[in-house]
Design a protein around this nucleic acid. Sequence first.
DNA 1: CACTTGACCTGTCCGC
DNA 2: TGCGGACAGGTCAAGT
Length: 285
Amino acid sequence: MPELPEVETIKKDLRKNITGRTIKSIRIFNKSTLRDWPANYRRMFIGQKIKSVDRRAKLILFFLSQGDVWVVHLKMTGQIVLKSRLGLLSGGHPIVGVDNVPNKFTRLMIELSGGLNIYFNDVRKFGYWQFIRQKRLPVLLNKYGPEPLGPSLTTKKLAGNLSRRLKSTIKAALLDQSIVAGLGNIYVDETLFLAGLRPERRVASLKQADFIKLTKSIKVILKKSLIARGTSFSNYLDAVGRPGSYWQQRLVYGRSGQACRRCHSVIIKSRVAGRGTHWCPICQK
DNA sequence: CACTTGACCTGTCCGC
DNA sequence: TGCGGACAGGTCAAGT
């Protein structure tokens, strides 16, 4: 489930629940989940506090009290589950459904003070939990484009970044995290529908009016999804936090064969930039 | 150089 | 019920 709205939702829940807690123990079930972890990680990490939690692009950042940082990417199937003695937590609310952590997909478990545990589950093992010194964090984060929900994403900025990918399809360009951070396959399709642009359009063919519509559409779609706490597929309903409800209001993603919400013609699914791509042949030009 | 494709890993779904 | 193939929310290295 993890594109920007989902990762932002998880970040907020983590921030609310784990800030200020002390790391008591760490259990590793899958070594390939770890990146750049020091050999003496137990001695380094145990006893440190979670100073703060933040997000940049699709990365979740855990700032530890001694200035070290965990950088976590959920990739396709990563989940962070909080479980306390009282049961599962999300934003302070007990979760129904995920009562079986740790399970065979649990790759990492971190025990915190106050009886709260973090479980990192990841079926496909693409996700990672990276260690980095705070001093080196900016180098890593600077590879990413502007945050779409903040003031840094403007039409001018987007058009400028897109000018580096003139021959690409607009779909491929928007999936590129250095153009704009946080979009993934679902929200690119949603954005392009709202902007009235076909996914296979070449960036070079776009006009100023298109860049304006694109910028607005990115912000509108992401904001709507964020309010809905993201998108949950049916088999992920019981993942992190309560299921996100953007799925119910999606415009085109996963709606091939169904009627376009705007013009009632049939939504098409094709392959663009190597990804399943959903769009309306009438509304998108 | 810029862009596209395959690989990473595991599960699910669909057709035969 | 079994088997093969396509596909899945992301990102890279490798190939064209």
